[in-house]
Design a protein around this nucleic acid. Sequence first.
DNA 1: ACCTGAACACCGTTCAAGT
DNA 2: ACCTGAACACCGTTCAAGT
Lengths: 243, 243
Amino acid sequence: MTTKTRASSKRATARKPRRGRPPKGASTLSREAITRAALEAIDGGGLEAVSLRVVARRLGVDPSSLYNHVASKDDLLDAVAEHILATFEVPAPTGALEDDLRAIGRAFRRHALEHANATVLVLTRPTISAASLGPLEAILAVLVGAGCTYDKAVHLLRVFMATMLGSVLRDASLSAAFDGEVFASLVRRGAALEASGLEHIVAAAPHLASFDGDAEFDFAVRLATAAIAAELGDADPRKGDRP
Amino acid sequence: MTTKTRASSKRATARKPRRGRPPKGASTLSREAITRAALEAIDGGGLEAVSLRVVARRLGVDPSSLYNHVASKDDLLDAVAEHILATFEVPAPTGALEDDLRAIGRAFRRHALEHANATVLVLTRPTISAASLGPLEAILAVLVGAGCTYDKAVHLLRVFMATMLGSVLRDASLSAAFDGEVFASLVRRGAALEASGLEHIVAAAPHLASFDGDAEFDFAVRLATAAIAAELGDADPRKGDRP
DNA sequence: ACCTGAACACCGTTCAAGT
DNA sequence: ACCTGAACACCGTTCAAGT
């Protein structure tokens, strides 16, 4: 019975929600909006902070309402992964095989890690829809443009993707936990390690402790592209090849 | 009041559990046993089928009892990943760089995919304890044995691991969902793809649709090891290098 | 067509109470 | 020292009831 006649007030937001569809056609709900809200929740609090109830709260809506636009929580997480893949912008090709692969790799890594908490979703869910095939198409274009058959291009594509995904996954996992701290702590308890017969780990510990994701990724991609270029029958692109 | 005096029966298993510690010193509970039970649950029903309550039921124990041996569910999952890594048996080295790396890679892939449902745990959790460093130590040994400095060995190790992890992750993700079906379905709706400007994907679809995990992995590892061998300053190991 | 509220069968985790 | 049972604050999902 409180303040029923104040509906004409400018701030009408305090209206008590009744049953059924909301009277106004505000309709903030859609698959898109839900996906975005879920991604925001993940960005804010990590993967395990996202729940349908949290997403619903964020949208000011009842949890069960989400099921009108999303089949399940799994479906929602797929949508998040797809959303990230679909918004990847492929860098413009220059025509030089190695440069182009490197550029795509770098751009993909940067894009994937932009939502670091969601990266593992992207790498882990086999979300192969048309919207998320941009990166694959771009890499195929570069390989075929370099005179590669489609058969061979697919294999090389897979090698390149594996290298990229493995690197990005490591970065995502590490940044999710404890950056360089992982191996730094190993160095500290070096004595315990020495006893376990891991002599090379102990000897390499200082190098293991320092980790520069960007540089490491570039190195991996450079090696992969060089191997791909060599496999394509070109001369080995490193210097000193024709004496 | 029912059958209280039948305690002397041979089948004493029907004893109603009372409060407190169980009278006998059966003590089936330990971090090891809990980890194994969790892995069995994962093997049987996938990652999302494992819960502390399910693990407890499997051990015939109250869920809260697990907290005497495990700090949290996260801790338990870490223990599972570590268990798998720790039981990896490194193949004996032969002294030939490329052969040895390939052997390690193959063995690791096979071992990781032996518990396919848990593989993503192994790849995703940064579980760097002494017990789980076997693979790293083995790879380092091979690289250093080939005359590599520790500095360079660490970088090459990371490249090799990225290639391996990326490949294994893809296999685990694919096998978790729908094997070759992923791209096979793409082929079917080729028309829809054509409209979205993914010409190379469409052209390569037949090759994308067929996927042999073992062969693909071998190819990736071969390329990676060749690149590593070349980077180490050896002559390019492919034929026809010195005319 | 789409949203609500209540309900169901689960969760992870804590803690006093037991032995 | 270690296990139990109950409790707490959450889950994902379903479904009749509303508009």
